[in-house]
């Protein structure tokens, strides 16, 4: 099967799966009822389930693309926005917001979590970036280590903020940290979609350079890639996408690890093929995870971060044990 055909089929199946999700839930909504005005099914479909599925779709696409570009940057399948401190930075930002919101009753409107998350993500990116630069050049190994350090540091700070908060705020932070798409408002959905789609286009345009980066930094530079510019573009675009998703839905883990890896198994490393595939497959994957989170303990909901973690843990092990003849991870 040729690669364009594979990408086409993957995108088609992803859209089909994502489109099917809003029909399922506590009750099945028959497709014919969604066009009947003021029918309860129609209201549930258009007002609740469709926005939520759309939020899951774009969140999944953003997290997966973030994983894809970080893995290309570090030539490491374990490099994700999480291992690099971006999402713990965003988490810290949002936690501080919730904590201050409780202590000082700060009112910054509904954009508060978004801006505080993005600020947190920006701080972590800035830290990782300056630690790496201070060691001369922008060496990948140093950057990865800096990311791990920042990640641990910020994760401890999140716990510290939680410790300082009263029971109510602490619970809010905890719920948020487990990730949920229940609270994504329709107004915010447009922001999310905009950021993720723009990020996707940007990543697609960078794809030949990411191929070269995958082949090796020195090789990429010798073929005309401006390494610093490319690394900065990748880091910033992925951080904005991930920061936005985290601010709305909490740090949903493992998506950026699983989706790009699975897509690579079918499509190889060509990013021009991978970028669109990862975008749609990631979206569909998180939409399905969201469906699972609504169905497994229905009528109660399992936080979506727990669903992805339950899938991601075994997947992680599978990557580790699935070594090819060359003995490496790809």
């Amino acid at each position: 099967m040729s690669f364009p055909l594979r990408v086409g089929i993957l995108i088609f199946l992803s859209l089909l799966a994502a489109a099917a999700c809003p029909f399922f839930g506590l009750t099945f909504i028959p497709p014919e009822s969604i066009f009947i005005p003021d029918h309860p099914d129609s209201l549930v479909f258009w007002r609740l389930r469709l926005p939520r599925t759309a939020a899951a779709f774009f969140a999944g696409a953003g997290l997966s693309l973030g994983g894809l570009v970080f893995q290309a940057l570090f030539r490491n399948p374990l490099a994700t926005p999480f291992t690099l401190g971006v999402s713990s930075g965003a988490s810290l930002g949002a936690s501080v917001y919730f904590w201050l919101g409780g202590v000082a009753l700060v009112k910054t409107g509904s954009l508060g979590p978004l801006f505080s998350s993005l600020a947190g993500a920006a701080v972590s990116v800035f830290l990782v970036w300056s630690i790496t630069s201070s060691r001369g050049g922008l060496q990948t190994a140093v950057m990865l280590l800096a990311g791990v350090v920042v990640n641990f540091f910020f994760s401890s700070l999140v716990l510290f903020v939680q410790y300082l908060s009263d029971a109510h705020d602490s619970l809010r932070i905890m719920h948020w940290l487990m990730g949920s798409l229940a609270g994504v408002e329709t107004a915010r959905l447009a922001e999310l979609a905009f950021v993720v789609v723009m990020g996707g286009v940007f990543v697609f345009l960078l794809s030949p350079q990411m191929d070269l980066l995958t082949a090796g930094e020195e090789l990429a530079a010798s073929r005309g890639v401006r390494l610093k510019t490319l690394k900065l573009s990748i880091f910033v675009s992925a951080s904005v996408m991930v920061g936005t998703v985290v601010s709305l839905a909490g740090p949903i883990g493992f998506v950026g690890l699983m989706v790009p890896h699975a897509c690579r198994l079918f499509l190889g490393w060509n990013h021009r093929r991978l970028a669109p595939a990862v975008f749609f497959a990631g979206g569909a994957f998180l939409a399905l995870c969201d469906l699972a989170s609504r169905l497994v303990l229905a009528p109660a909901e399992v936080p979506i971060g727990i669903v992805t973690a339950l899938l991601g843990g075994p997947f992680f092990l599978w990557i580790l044990f699935r070594t090819n003849s060359a003995g490496d991870l790809f």
Partner: peptide
């Protein structure tokens, strides 16, 4: 990169590409 071609030192990371893909990537400039 259009004037100077480069063959790096061997060893280390082996890119996950085919022979042809590697050559196609080198058309980047």
């Amino acid at each position: 990169a259009r004037v100077v071609s480069y063959v790096p030192q061997a060893g280390g990371w082996i890119p996950p590409f085919s022979v042809r893909e590697l050559a196609r990537l080198s058309r980047f400039p």
